[in-house]
Every structure is written in structure tokens, then in C-alpha cells.
Design a binder for these strands. Structure first.
Lengths: 227, 227
DNA sequence: AATCTAAGCGTAATTATTACGCAAAGTTAA
DNA sequence: TTAACTTTGCGTAATAATTACGCTTAGATT
């Protein structure tokens, strides 16, 4: 290398949650800097001896106080030299899912105020975060079809109509209730809790649990989840 | 950030080719440094004002002289702090496909000697490059099923038995020749060149071209490729 | 001319998906 | 108390997709 490399490396997290029958994304409001008050993804610089994943978990904890169910690397944004107006920053974006009914957001921390936004009503975002969010939405949509990640957005015990609504909301299409149920049950990955949940109207619904252990076993045997 | 960030950023490229009915990967032999003589993926440090993609293309050109048909980001390796014995390096790995019958490797350059290795006969690799290669193989295998990327490994004009062998080799399973042909033709993405290719034995085979333009059009109409 | 080999086409059997009718189990209103 | 209403839960027929595999064709070889 002729010149000393002068590139900073950061991580950003797209956190998806599901409440009120809608997909939500977690954003934080910038408190300092040139982009003060504007909303952005959770994120920050990586420390010298810190693995990337640890950096994401640390930022999530510091800025929002949450622990995610599911975390995977999404994409590394490093082609646009000027994505950060201060200096060159390459960002490794992560994609995560939480059961938003369970968690409590921290009211207010040093760096930021965190808030859930319905995915169809997101404010303008700082940096290139809109682009990152868009990619994350596409990934969620395609991944939901071939991996059982929907459960990471729901409570441990759930009813079929909630699972179905989640799939409808994210895939943005109508699903036949009866075929959906039949297909899911045919995998043998759901177990009844024995409990029923009273509905506002109509027959009470049985609640189910996702058997993650069984899923892992099936995977080893060559099973392929596909909805 | 309390301390000045001191992390270097590099790119690595996994280059796949297909010859002698086998999947191959392109490797370079280290000429200097502690890992002299050992084989590694093509790669190097990113320059200050250089987009990541440009860095990959530059390294490929410098170290091997090739131009790839297909390039996409694979994964960013930054959890293992000591993956490079010298200092902390985060590597953004790219995944690429070339038609290896077309290209000429540069005989020898300043930095390295490049060579094709059959995927089932790869030498020990430097750094964590075996891990990277493994991930790339998995990605290739899954991607081949739902995107028409096999054509990037073949000459522009090809015959069905070559396409079929490529799928068999990468997916590591037997495919019924007749059903494979039927399915592919049903997409309407292949056009006959009008030429036939004499075989060592048996009936001569018709050659085909992949209609990339048509594929793009179909995609916009919601078409989903799946083999 | 008979034999061999791989390409190319077709068809039946099986499996998966989709559409949708209807009973069951509750609540609410008359 | 019962009729009306709503959503869950199960089943079945129609349609579509996949798989298995036989047979003809077009060349080279013996």
C-alpha cells in the first residue's frame, strides 16, 4: 500500500419487529452531530479488538437496550465513498428480528432515543440508511419464504391467524388461511400448547409453539423449509 | 471512539470456473511474506478513495489478468480478530464466475502466479481462505437453483449435455437428462443457434444461447427462475 | 448393413398446490 | 333461550408441477 489506509469501519443494524399486525423497524434519533434530530439505524464504529458481531450487540444494547432473537449479516456498504459526509466509512449492515411484544425499549440513553416505526411509515433517514433498509426488507421477504424466521418476530406461543397475518404483511399477498395451516402443520414443526386463546369473535384458537430442536434435526436430514 | 481505530480493510475474490466437466477455483501463490509459497484467494487492500467493487476488479486484473462475467458480494469476515497474523484485517469477500475456456491467465505477475484447481482438489490455503471458499461453494450451490448463473460459467454457445453436467457437478446430484431439458426449454430463455456440435459418439447436439435480455424482461413481469 | 451411443421427444404416474365447502365453538343480539 | 354471526379447524375435488422412463433419431464405428 503506497499510502496509509484511512478508512473507518462501522456496523449498522436493521431491527425488525411485529406489532399491531404490522411489520415495524427500530430507529434512533441522532442527538449530536451535523445530522442531529434526523432518524437513523442503530449503529456505530467498531472497536479495535472487537469482533463485528460483538460490535452490533454492543450498539444495540447501548442505544436501545434490546436483545435480538435473530441476527445475520446483510451487506457491506463500501462502494459509495461519500456515504458519510465526515470521512470514508464502510458499514457492515446486520439484519435482525425481535419479538417486540416482549422487549422494553430503554426510555432514553446517552446517545439516542429509540422508537418503532411501521414499515410503511418510515421517516427520512440519515446517510444511506434508506437504501440499507430497502435491501433489508427485500431480504426479509425472500428469506421468510425459505427459512422459518417468522417465529422470531412472534411470542413463543402464538395462534395461526397471527402467523398467517405476519406472512401476509411481509410477503404483501393474500394467503388462503386453510392451505396455509395445512402446509405448516405438514412440516411437523409446530406443537400444540394445549391452550386456547379467546378471540374477539368466533371460535377460540389453539395456540402453538415452534419446535426449533426438531427443525435442526430435520435440516441435518436434508429437509428444506419452503412456504 | 476512545482510541483511534486501527483496522485494515481488504477484499478477496473467489473465482469459479468450469472446465473438463469440473468446477474449478482460481488461486494465487504468495510470493512474499510469512506465508510465501502457500496458495490463497485473489485479494488485497482497498485504496483510500477506491470503491470496494473497484478494488476487487483491480486485484483480479493485477494478479490474474481476468475479467469476470459475474461478481457479487459474499460475506464480510471480521469476527476473527486474528485471521491475519500481521494485524487486524477485515475482508469483504466477493464471489465471481468466469467462462474459463475464454480467458487467458497472465503467466506471471509481480505479486503472484495464478492457477486453476478442481474444487475437489484444492491445496491448503493461507489465512481463513478455506472457510471463505467453503461459504462460496455453498452460496454457488444454492444460487444455481434459483438464478440462471450457470451460463456465466459456460461459453456463449453451449449444448444441453454441458449445461446438465455443470448442474450435476455443482449440485452434486443426478439429474434426469430429459426432464432437465424440458424444464429449461419451458422457460423460453434459450434460443437455438441453428448449429449442431458433433459428439465423440451418438447424435450431434444442437447448440443454444441464453437470452439474457429476455430474462430481464421476464423478471420485471414477476418471473421466478427455479430449477 | 448391423451395432453402438447420445440427443431429442413424448406420455403416464405420482406428488404438490390451489380453490373452496362445511362443521365446530364460541359471542352477541333479539 | 335461541337465532344470528364470526372465526377456527378439517376435508375433498380440481388443477398444476414433478418425476420416471420408453422410444425414435442421427450420427460414428465395426
Amino acid at each position: 500500500m503506497e499510502l496509509i489506509q484511512d478508512i473507518k469501519i462501522a456496523v449498522d443494524a436493521i431491527v425488525f419487529g411485529y406489532k399491531q399486525n404490522e411489520l415495524h423497524v427500530l430507529l434512533v434519533q441522532q442527538k449530536y452531530g451535523r445530522l442531529k434530530d434526523s432518524w437513523a439505524l442503530v449503529g456505530g464504529f467498531v472497536k479495535n479488538g472487537e469482533p463485528l458481531q460483538d460490535a452490533v450487540h454492543r450498539e444495540l444494547l447501548e442505544e436501545t437496550g434490546i436483545k435480538v432473537n435473530y441476527l445475520e449479516q446483510l451487506y457491506t456498504f463500501g462502494d459509495d465513498i461519500d456515504r458519510d459526509p465526515r470521512f470514508r466509512v464502510i458499514s457492515v449492515a446486520y439484519f435482525s428480528l425481535v419479538n417486540s411484544t416482549k422487549l422494553q425499549l430503554v426510555a432514553d440513553t446517552d446517545a439516542a432515543a429509540a422508537e418503532w416505526f411501521p414499515i410503511n411509515n418510515v421517516p427520512q433517514l440519515a446517510y444511506d440508511h434508506s437504501k440499507i433498509l430497502k435491501l433489508a426488507c427485500e431480504r426479509l421477504k425472500s428469506k421468510l419464504k425459505y427459512q422459518p424466521i417468522g417465529f422470531d418476530l412472534l411470542p413463543k406461543e402464538f395462534i395461526f391467524s397471527d402467523l398467517e397475518n405476519l406472512y401476509c404483511a411481509i410477503l404483501e399477498k393474500e394467503i388462503d388461511r386453510r392451505n396455509f395451516r395445512k402446509k405448516f402443520l405438514s412440516f411437523g414443526l409446530l406443537e400444540e400448547t394445549g391452550k386456547t386463546i379467546a378471540q374477539p369473535a368466533g371460535r377460540p384458537a389453539r395456540s402453538f409453539r415452534f419446535n426449533r430442536q426438531k427443525y435442526k434435526t430435520l435440516i441435518k436430514e436434508g429437509f428444506h423449509f419452503e412456504i
